[in-house]
Design a protein around this nucleic acid. Structure first.
Lengths: 135, 135
DNA sequence: AAGTAGTTTAGAACAATTCTAAAATCTGCA
DNA sequence: TGCAGATTTTAGAATTGTTCTAAACTACTT
């Protein structure tokens, strides 16, 4: 692929975030290759393996900022642990219990009919479908 | 209603749990009246208001045991906090952000079509639909 | 190159939950 | 009814995941 190495600095700047060394490193880990599901701890381990020292606090900060900027989506499936999904498009999840493995599935073939109207005074934000499966 | 006061002790015994004073008190709070959504902290506050001293650890123990026994269902909708639902039948949830309010809705009118098959080696356990709404 | 605002960091702090080991309570049985 | 033995409760410590603090550092502007 000619000249297609993604410019993470630019991508961060567009999102309103200064492209610091650690944010660029995290962005690279998150966005190169296919979609990923990460936890803060997991991403921290990954980035430290690249020999760039990044504190856990920075990983948390970055994940929250990336999510707020729309670069990531937070997925809540298990008590006491947050997952972040690099796939920000419409889709749903398989959650494999008790391992805690997450898999995306496309939502374009899924039809949900008969949902009640939102409680009054509220507007719909998103519909999450979590298909829980066991081994 | 003549003679219909529910026997929580019996209900607990059937579930394989010794009907201790604190479990009975918690069961009464949870199961009398309509369906409830509680957090450990919230239920703890409720039970202490009845003047029966029950430790927070016991509330956690009881909620986990009740869930394992099928008396409650755990609902994971927000990071860092577990809700327990006294409605154990098929239904789904509205979740009002950012308040953290939860509302049930019946699933019998909801149709979900086009779900992919579970990843191989797994069997379907449950499909959760969380309709996230905002004020 | 310097100033400044934004970022990173280690470590403390915090919140939710679980663990520990001792004291209290339930249950079956004599 | 009284006891023994198993289960439960409890206070407090421990653990886990996450956020905060305030000092050091770095990116951007001039």
């Amino acid at each position: 692929m000619p000249g297609t190495s993604p410019d993470y600095a630019a991508r961060l700047r567009e999102a309103g975030l200064r492209p610091t060394r650690q944010r660029v490193a995290l962005a690279r880990l998150l966005f190169e290759g296919g979609h990923r599901h990460v936890t803060a701890e997991g991403l921290h381990a990954d980035v430290r393996a690249t020999r760039l020292p990044v504190s856990l606090a920075t990983v948390y900060n970055a994940l929250n900022q990336f999510r707020d900027a729309g670069l990531l989506r937070e997925v809540v499936v298990a008590p006491g642990r947050s997952y972040f999904d690099t796939n920000t498009g419409h889709h749903h999840h398989f959650f494999v219990e008790p391992d805690g493995e997450l898999h995306d599935f496309a939502s374009d073939k899924v039809t949900i009919a008969g949902l009640p109207a939102p409680p009054k005074g509220t507007r719909l934000a998103r519909v999450d479908v979590i298909v829980r499966v066991r081994r």
